[in-house]
Design a protein around this nucleic acid. Structure first.
Lengths: 222, 222, 222, 222
DNA sequence: AATGAATGAGCTTTCATTCAT
DNA sequence: GATGAATGAAAGCTCATTCAT
């Protein structure tokens, strides 16, 4: 049965647009405040103030405060993964891709959206069951992405890792490296100015670790 | 004039011992609960209940709830550093020492005191200014320890890193790797059973990264 | 460009009125309880109960418990001063005005609002720095009002006091007399029935004191 | 039956003396702190600290905190009454006696023991049922003393007041005057330097009030 | 749809007081 | 008798969340 196509009226469109705009401005406000003052130190009223609505209105866009954090985290996670994926793909899944992905993380993610990095690596940590559960899922996906990239890479070069596990562990390690470097040099000790130099070293370390395992495998029979 | 030497009475000694015991049992209770239910989900009363004192008594041993977290974090941090330092030193600051330190972290720290790892890597994160400040200091010390170990290592082998910075970044990366592996395979996905296998791989990755940079340096003129 | 005139809607007006009503009923409840049971013996919850709101609501109308006491004190102080001022003015600032003011204090202030007198002369005393500071300021204003009345009075009669100080001291004394009489015969020893007889005597004493000083001055060669 | 007379041993005597000394030093500490920081702002521990005993020891000398306040108040009250009585008696219960008593209050009581005045006129006010009850009794006794003095005075001069009540009211008023002047010029506005000038005026006002009523009576038939 | 207002549900914290030693 | 230690009992206060308008 065909649904009658209702052409949305002009005002309905505007309303729709306004709504979307509100949603974003609230979310942005939350991100900003969570990153700046911390999740617990931010009240719903402050989020309302910054996004120019009342605290009650925030509730018609987000289930609750936790939902705001979850959404912000998911969004950041999504961008993280996209960035990594794009960078890796752009270099045909080569070793250079791995390098690019690492540099891109620092250049395009951390430096451009520090608040996202802070939420992902600090504010979403230690905030109770539901958040932790989502964070776990997200980080597992991130690790999986990297693991797949590593597998593709080895495929391309024509070697394989000792085990599937091995690639996974490397992936998890890489996530750890990036997270810690971001935390250390951007969040704690504001070295934003020369973060890219640091990034170079960190990426070199990463590549070194990966290569060494690949080489090791290479020399092995089988 | 001779000061009378006040020999602590037997009862005073016992009281002293009792007090120390209380202090420890409260701190242990807090660690356990923070790790199990989360910092914010734990009330002072629950800590009192578990350590068989009243909440008010908890306050005569610790300034406030934050103080408990800080103390727990500091303690965990201290043990982390000691473990790493001992393991590295036990192998004469050689490359094996680096390996031992890594394995020791997983074997003697994570598996034996998972609640300490959880506090260090999860519950102490995202808990406001003071805690964050202390955490930063602690993690910087941890990174410094590892950096110094790396420097000693290179001295022993007779090579040096491209720069001081370079060693530092490796150290920070190593902290990141360990933290993330612990989080991933122990906290999230309880693979405690075979954590040591995972540890092997992670350590291999670490060693690979370090070696590669050392080798790279080696091949460089000067 | 013309600003659109925002006419407050009917509902907004009602809300405004409701709010004002709430504020008053909370303040009245606090006054009643402070006077009856004492400031420290009254909890925020009890104030909420009596004014039929929750304790949390009390906090959205008053900063804290102290704020309630301060407000109550200020309000009582304002009414005290108004009453005295009116009574004195109504009799053209004559000696009769002084008398009227005294009688009015007992008749219209103490007997009609005993809780206000109790707050002013008992509950606001000895309650810490901020309250004491405000109380001091209030009582100084009260004394100043009376002093000015005394000065006007002497002007009217054509005599002057030995010094400005002298009038001030009389004023302070008068405040003391009224406060003590109220405390003694209304708060402690409920003689409300014949408080006005007592008032007559107290006022007579006051007038006597003032007159005597005026006379003394009169007889002095300027 | 005759009690055997036990001659107290030397050590028992010393113990007795020590105990008395402790009692006084605790009470003094409490007076000092109550006057300086306020009753509620003073904790038992602080009282202990200042008198060099533990808070628990304070409880073997005084029933509770309220008891300390009550004792301090009673002691101050006793000295107030003694001072007034002596001064009045020293001048043969004449009008000069009244004057002396007033001056003595300011000179020998307020200036010498400001903390006593503060406790009597500020800290003991508004502190709950039991304290208020004792305070009432004390102030009634004080008023009665003065009333009796006034009656003796009128006897001496050969006139009488309109009624017994009349003398009582004057007495209460006088207490009020002294209390307020002390509060105003010593506690609030530290005019200790010239408090005696102020005292002169206040006493003059008092005497004026009394005289006027006596004169009034005198001129009346009967 | 937006919001002012109300509140439930906690939580931390303080202290006077007691008691075993 | 002195005291270190423990605690009961509140109290003040905050905030995420709900709901009537």
């Amino acid at each position: 049965m065909k649904e009658p196509i209702i052409k949305p009226s002009r005002s309905a469109l505007r309303r729709q647009r306004d709504k979307e705009y509100r949603y974003q401005s609230i979310l942005n406000a939350a991100e900003k405040l969570f990153a700046e003052k911390g999740y617990h130190q931010t009240s719903m009223e402050q989020i309302g103030d910054l996004s120019e609505v009342s605290a009650a209105t925030v509730y018609s866009y987000f289930r609750n405060k936790e939902d705001l954090l979850l959404t912000a985290m998911r969004k950041s996670g999504y961008e993280f993964r996209k960035m990594i994926g794009d960078a890796f793909g752009a270099a045909d899944h080569s070793m250079d891709g791995l390098k690019n992905a690492g540099l891109s993380f620092f250049r395009d993610f951390c430096l451009k959206h520090p608040e996202k990095a802070i939420i992902l690596f600090r504010e979403a940590v230690g905030q109770g069951e539901e958040v932790e559960d989502q964070r776990k899922k997200l980080f597992m996906k991130m690790a999986l992405d990297i693991k797949n990239a590593l597998l593709k890479l080895s495929d391309n070069i024509g070697f394989k890792y000792e085990s599937d596990r091995s690639a996974e562990i490397m992936a998890v390690s890489i996530v750890g490296i990036y997270a810690q470097i971001a935390c250390h040099y951007m969040i704690w000790d504001d070295s934003s100015c020369n973060l890219m130099d640091i990034a170079d070293s960190a990426v070199a370390f990463t590549i070194g670790g990966v290569s060494s395992l690949i080489s090791n495998e290479k020399s092995k029979p089988n």
